[in-house]
Structure formats: C-alpha cells, structure tokens
C-alpha cells in the first residue's frame, strides 16, 4: 500500500466541498456502493417495511375512524415510522460501504466476499455499538411492541418516535464516526494485552474537539438529506404521474417510492460521512501530512537498501 497514493486528494475541505465531492465519489464507484449498501440495507429495509405494514391495513384504519381523514393519517404514521427506522439503523446499513470506501481510497480492491470476511470478526462489537448503544436494533424491536389498536401508542410508539429518535439524533450529531472507528480503525471495545486504543478512547479523541463542527455538519446534512429524499420522491411521482395519470399518494408511494428514496439518499450520505471522517482526521491529526511523511520515509528506506534487497530505487536528482 502506497500511503500517499490515495484516490481522493487528501486536503482540508468545507462541508459544501465535501458534499460535492461525495457526488464525484458516488459517480465513480456507484456500483460497489450500491452493492455494499444493499448488503445490510435491503434486508433491514425489507424488515422495516414488514414491521410497519399493518399501519396501512383495515384494522389500523378502523382504529383511526374517528379522525377526519383516517387513511391519510395512517399513511403519514406509516411513512414517519419507516423513515425514522431507516434513520436510526443507517449506521448499521452504511457499515459495509464505509469499509469499502476506506480501502478504495488506497486503491485496495474490496470485493463483496472479502468485505464479508473483513466484517465477520468485528460483527459482535458492531452489533453492540451500532445495534444496542446506538439503538439501531432496539428501534426495530420496539416497533413490534407498538399497540395496533391505538391511533397513537403512548408507551412504545412514544418511546420510539421521541425518546429513541431524540437520543439517536444527539448521538449521531455529536459522535458520528462510529462505523469508521469500528470498521476501518478496528478499535476493540476493551483494551487487550496489547493495550490497543479502545473504541471509547478513539471516539473521544476523534469527536470531542470538533463536536460543534460535527453538529453543524449534521444539521446541514439533514437538511440536504431531506431535500434529496424529496427530490427523489418527486422523480418517482413524476414517472408515475406521467405514465398513469395518477398523481396521488398511493400504495406504490408507501411500499416502493419511500424506501427507494431513503435508500438512494442514504448511499450519498454514507459517502458524505466517510469523507467527513477523513476531513476530521485531517483537521485534528494532520492525517494528510502524516501519510505523505510516512510515504517519503518508506521511499527513502527503500532507496537506502541495496538493489538486490528488492528496494525501490529512487532517483536522487534534484528536481526542486
């Protein structure tokens, strides 16, 4: 691995530049990003759709019949649940994409099989951090406890929509880079004999000094995320309206357009979060300089070796 040979130019960028660069990365690697994102994304989204399907059934409409527009109210309820489940689970869904991108920037190929082999040993710690601490799987379990005979369940539904979402928002805004720390830096949850840096220590080091920056970026990204999801939904609606003449919010919208729109904008924001992680490391740790210095040191070391030792011979000519 040549440490200064990165596919993305390593330099400090503004949040807007990172958003634009995310589009370029997505354009170049759209297929691996789609497949890696589908690895956990499709099963989880399918489970979410299954878990909230009942909200569009007759029983749910009957429970809401005292409302002015029960069908519309239940549609909104269904969409909000689906959207929040996806949002809370997004860090789990985007983990394979993060690992792919982390290797891709050093031109290291990461086919799907290799990616799965890479993720398998860290699955347990990812499950604990992303699934339990960051509530990704907790939210899914909670969804099953929502009372189906109520228009709004003040226990499980309130906990899911307000408490869990609130905690998740706070964690994601202030400590966004858990998938990168677990998937790329491979930090363990507890220090072993080697006294490795633990997940907690690394998270503190990476997030604490730039917390206000992270929050500002999170707010900006949320705005653009909602905008992008609406744009994609608009595109789906346009295709439906032009082809069938039906411009209304219907079953296709509930079961297909919303999950697709969320998933597609999720692809983009997985890339954006990874680029923000690089940017944080550059700002905090001078990562771009470290990579360059380490590469230079490697080159000098190789140049010092005799040719038969397999070292790379570098021309010593002054070219400044």
């Amino acid at each position: 691995m040549q440490l200064d040979k990165t596919e993305i130019v390593i330099r400090q960028r503004t949040a807007f530049e990172l958003l634009d660069l995310s589009l370029l990365v997505l354009r170049r690697h759209w297929w691996p990003i789609v497949t890696t994102s589908a690895l956990l994304g499709l099963p989880l989204i399918a489970l979410d759709v299954w878990a909230v399907y009942w909200m569009l059934g007759e029983d749910a409409y009957l429970a809401a019949e005292h409302l002015v527009e029960p069908q519309s109210a239940m549609r909104w309820r269904h969409s909000i649940h689906l959207f929040l489940l996806y949002f809370i689970q997004f860090q789990i869904i985007s983990l394979p994409t993060t690992v792919f991108l982390g290797n891709q920037i050093f031109y290291e190929e990461m086919p799907l099989k290799k990616l799965v082999r890479r993720l398998w040993p860290i699955a347990w710690r990812c499950l604990i951090v992303l699934g339990l601490v960051r509530l990704g799987l907790v939210s899914f379990i909670l969804e099953w406890f929502v009372d189906r005979n109520e228009v709004f369940d003040w226990t499980a539904e309130f906990t899911l929509l307000i408490v869990v979402t609130g905690i998740s928002l706070l964690i994601r805004a202030c400590w966004p880079f858990a998938p990168e720390i677990l998937g790329l830096e491979l930090c363990p949850l507890r220090a072993g004999w080697g006294k490795e840096i633990t997940y907690g220590q690394r998270s503190k080091g990476l997030h604490q000094l730039l917390m206000s920056d992270h929050m500002a970026r999170f707010i900006g990204a949320s705005f653009f995320g909602i905008l992008m999801t609406l744009m994609i939904l608009g595109g789906c609606l346009f295709a439906q309206g032009v082809s069938t003449g039906d411009w209304r919010w219907n079953g296709w919208f509930d079961h297909l357009y919303i999950p697709v729109a969320m998933w597609l904008s999720g692809l983009f924001f997985a890339v954006f979060r990874f680029l923000s992680y690089l940017d944080s490391r550059i700002r905090l740790e001078g990562w771009e300089i470290e990579l360059r210095l380490r590469a230079e040191a490697d080159r000098r070391r190789a140049a010092m070796l005799p040719p038969d030792a397999g070292g790379e011979i570098v021309s010593a000519q002054v070219t400044t």
Partner: peptide, 20 residues
C-alpha cells in the same frame, strides 16, 4: 538531495504544522 516529492511534503508540513 531533495526531489520534488520530498520538497512538496516538507512544504505541506510547514503549511499545516501550526494547527497541530
């Protein structure tokens, strides 16, 4: 002797060292 790659690396370091 300093080649262009090393010179750029040194320049990059000096540009950024004050923020570290």
């Amino acid at each position: 002797q300093v080649n262009s790659s090393l010179a750029q690396t040194i320049g990059l370091y000096m540009e950024n060292r004050k923020r570290l």
